[in-house]
């Protein structure tokens, strides 16, 4: 497997992560459905995970992979609470359109 890693330059992973992250941001800006926005956030988290694993393999340090592990943990917890909030919001305003959630202002 050694040549597999050596076969792909680090730059490629940088580029891929950048593109995925930007698509995630685009999704957050583009859509109004709160659940899709949450999914795009997951996408952004995963692009960062990918970059961490790439750097971990290139540096030969397993600590970065442990951090990926922790990011997954936090993401799972976040999704659990986030979706519970979605359900609650939907129950109250019968919609998940973020443009309706504009009560919190001056």
């Amino acid at each position: 497997m050694k040549e597999v890693v050596q076969g792909i330059p680090l730059n490629y992973y940088l580029a891929l992560s950048t593109v995925l992250f930007s698509i995630g941001v685009l999704g957050v800006l583009f859509r109004r459905n709160a659940i899709i926005i949450l999914m795009c956030v997951e996408l952004m988290l995963n692009s960062v995970n990918l970059l961490l694993v790439a750097f971990s393999a290139f540096h030969g340090d397993a600590k970065a992979q442990v951090f990926v592990f922790f990011i997954m943990i936090v993401a799972a917890a976040e999704v659990a609470v986030g979706l519970a909030l979605m359900v609650l919001i939907y129950r109250n305003i019968k919609s998940l359109d973020i443009d309706f959630l504009n009560k919190l202002k001056w």
């Binding site: 050694k2 393999a57 030969g60 992979q65």
Partner: peptide, 18 residues
């Protein structure tokens, strides 16, 4: 960037660090 140890991602290795 050089590859120092390509086996960092194995379960054994990760478990030790974790």
């Amino acid at each position: 960037v050089t590859v120092q140890n390509s086996n960092v991602g194995t379960i054994e290795n990760l478990g030790k660090v974790l």
